[in-house]
Design a protein around this nucleic acid. Structure first.
Lengths: 85, 85
DNA sequence: AGATATTTGTTCGTATGTATC
DNA sequence: GGATACATACGAACAAATATC
């Protein structure tokens, strides 16, 4: 029930999901460079369509919280590395 | 033919469209706070689905180049106002 | 090398909701 | 109320990149 969506809420599903993922990361459930569940697993656990899950992911990616790699998965952004040099 | 899409290109349609719009703005075809064509008009002129057009729009919005208002339309972002004070 | 599976990326068509005109 | 315009969401299909066998 980790990422459950309230379909009767007026808050859009993708925002709800983004919030839950944000919380999970903030709670230390996923560390830097840890892999998040796949889109498919999110669709299964939430009942949302892939496009909707992806929208949540892209939102967090825009925030710089996570990053995605085609063919590999979605990962938590690590703390800023010391700038080159 | 203003915003024509090359469907044989390897560049995704939404990126192509975003590029064309970016150019049109850079070319001074739309001034600050000018209204861009509606999603519907873009779908008609390009042959793309609404979701794809919207993806292009959201990309430019993320860049800060344009902004959208539900029920009104999409507009060109003006030059930065002097910071409050 | 090749086949297969997994995972994210792109795109369509459609429907409905919300806001504005 | 009606028309217009952007927002959310579904289901489906296929492409592209990666991983595994």
């Amino acid at each position: 029930m980790e990422f459950e969506i309230d379909f009767r809420s007026k808050t859009p599903s993708y925002q709800q999901l983004a919030g839950k993922i944000r919380q999970a990361i903030a709670a230390g459930q996923y560390a830097a460079d840890d892999k998040l569940p796949s889109l498919k697993r999110f669709t299964q656990e939430t009942g949302l369509a892939q496009g909707t899950v992806q929208k949540a992911i892209k939102l967090l990616e825009a925030e710089g919280l996570i990053y995605t790699v085609n063919g590999r998965g979605t990962f938590v952004t690590g703390p800023p590395r010391s700038l080159s040099a």
